[in-house]
Design a protein around this nucleic acid. Structure first.
Length: 410
RNA sequence: GGGGGAAUACCCGAGUGGCCAAAGGGGCCAGACUGUAAAUCUGGUGGCUCAGCCUUCGCAGGUUCGAAUCCUGCUUCCCCCA
């Protein structure tokens, strides 16, 4: 197939990319590929340690998609062997949980199905690094270990920090970057995609490739996507992520909580909108800009009508102060009520499951967070008797609410 | 193998005999403010029949009128030397 010109390709590749190392070699590689008609091999490795793919993962995946659209070959590495080690990048401590081979494979399958929402999986090569690591002898491993010095390994920031903090570093963790780098040798990567924290492994891959007499890969590194808290990197463990398999409305709610400052980054990294257009959107009302952002990303993982529906629902229920559409029904037995059909306010909140304990409920009430009915009448006192009727609406704060259903006889 | 140190609430972490349901920070929850965003400010953050009572500071015992704090044993973890 015909490739676009090197300049056009570079323009696409550079968007939303923080660092390309070595930058000057990229144009050269692209030119060679253009001349020979040989697509470049683009590597992206994922560890199937957890099942959910979130927007943070899609940043390099989208870049992968762009490479595919430019006519290059996507190569996905499923790190079923590296998963057993755990990536020490950006971690303060070793991963303790060990996954079984079955869990890893199940995760891998689910991963691939989600990855397929971003890249054209039918045109991608998929490898499991167990295919080669599983057949290595101890001598092979020793040979690999002989390529790197301990001092080099320890220059990694993650390890340095842990040394200082006097937290343990296990030997097998040191092998992680080595394994990742060896993957590049095995699949003859021309370009590797990942976050900026991958620099060390990417460079190590170049060393190993050179050693093996192969052309050296180029690292194309994306910035770290911040999570919905607007501060820390998006990650499952931090609970600040938006998963690409989440329901449209759930995504919508999370997007709308995003700090305004993050919008430009999200637009740049997670959408294909031209940056000039993005500037235009951002100069308008921030709320509108956020709705547009949310809709455009939700459309990608669901569809336009689902996105529109999520947006209008958000406006109706949250933006407009209307009643939520899916109020959970909580059953309360009539036998829990007093003879007058009442319940002390604190007990009602606890029985309805809105508060963890009556103490918790007391606090909520004391702070004016407990409300009743569609008019949201504030509950004044924790021992105030509440007449519990069928269909009574109970709120704690803005996010916890339910409708009571009375069940049972006397 | 030898020596040293640590274990406190969701997390980090102060607390060395009573004033400790336990400082401070983070997180989380609620209120105010807003665009029911973020930021900020205020309050809260073991349980209960709540001016009181009960249970909690790795686990099990012990000393004491009284223990997170002292003693004994156990478990787990870290560091250093070899």
């Amino acid at each position: 197939m015909a490739f676009p010109s090197v300049e056009d390709q570079l323009a696409v590749i550079r968007r939303g990319v923080e660092t390309i190392v070595p930058e000057e070699e990229l144009a050269k590689k692209l030119a060679e590929s253009l001349a020979s008609g040989q697509p470049l091999r683009i590597k992206y490795g994922i560890d199937p340690t957890a099942a959910d793919v979130h927007l943070g993962h899609t940043v390099p995946l989208r870049k992968m998609r762009q490479f595919q659209d430019l006519g290059h070959q996507a190569v996905i590495i499923i790190g079923n062997y590296t998963a057993m080690v755990g990536d020490p990048s950006g971690r303060d401590e070793a991963r303790t949980s060990k996954l079984s081979a079955e869990e890893v494979e199940a995760n891998a399958q689910f991963y691939l199905s989600q990855v397929g929402k971003v890249i054209d999986i039918d045109k991608a090569e998929v490898h499991r690094n167990g295919d080669w690591f599983g057949h290595m002898s101890f001598a092979d491993v020793l040979g690999l270990c002989g390529k790197v010095t301990v001092a080099q390994l320890l220059t990694r920031d993650d390890f340095t920090k842990r040394m200082k903090a006097e937290t343990p570093i296990y030997l097998h963790e040191c092998l992680y970057p080595l394994m990742q780098a060896w993957d590049s040798v095995e699949i003859k990567a021309d370009i590797e995609l990942g976050g900026t924290e991958q620099l060390y492994s990417f460079m190590l891959a170049r060393d190993l490739q050179k050693d093996a007499g192969l052309p050296q890969q180029i690292g194309v590194m994306s910035p770290i996507l911040v999570g919905t808290d607007g501060k820390k990197r998006m990650g499952k463990s931090l609970g600040n992520y938006i998963g690409i398999s989440e329901a449209p409305y759930e995504m919508m709610k999370k997007f709308m909580q995003l700090s305004d400052d993050c919008m430009r980054m999200y637009y740049e990294l997670l959408t294909d909108r031209p940056l000039a257009e993005v500037d235009g959107i951002l100069s308008g009302h921030p709320k509108e800009a956020k709705v547009t952002l949310a809709k455009s990303i939700i459309t990608e993982y669901h569809d336009a009508s689902a996105a529109q529906e999520a947006a209008s629902r958000w406006q109706r229920e949250i933006g407009g102060g209307g009643l939520p559409a899916d109020i959970p029904i909580v059953e309360i037995s009539k036998s829990d009520l007093s003879d007058e059909g009442t319940l002390r306010a604190a007990n009602l909140l606890k029985l309805a499951g809105l508060c963890a304990s009556t103490s918790d409920a007391r606090r909520a009430i004391q702070q004016g967070g407990a409300k009743l009915g569609e008019s949201k009448t504030v509950v004044a006192s924790h021992d105030q008797p509440i007449e519990v009727t069928d269909g009574l609406l109970v709120w704690v704060g803005k996010k916890r609410f339910c409708r009571i259903k009375l069940v049972g006889g006397e």
